[in-house]
Amino acid sequence: MQLKINGKTLEVKDGCNIEALLQQLGLKADRVAVERNRNIVMRSDFDTTVLQNNDQIEIVNFVGGG
């Protein structure tokens, strides 16, 4: 199925959840904030949030320093 990730199309396996998507993108789950179809997804729900075809996903990957 296809997802829109930060505006770009990405092909992922059917039944993919957010945890698996982050793994595929090489991102660490504890350093990101994720919106699915404009709703914030809590980290505790990453592995149970199963994505659907055409879902719009926004990911902010935080880096350290401040």
Binding site: D30, R31, V32, A33, M42, V60, F62, V63, G64
Partner: peptide
Amino acid sequence: HASAKAELTQ
């Protein structure tokens, strides 16, 4: 820390 930033944001 990046993880604290992410937790606060969510």
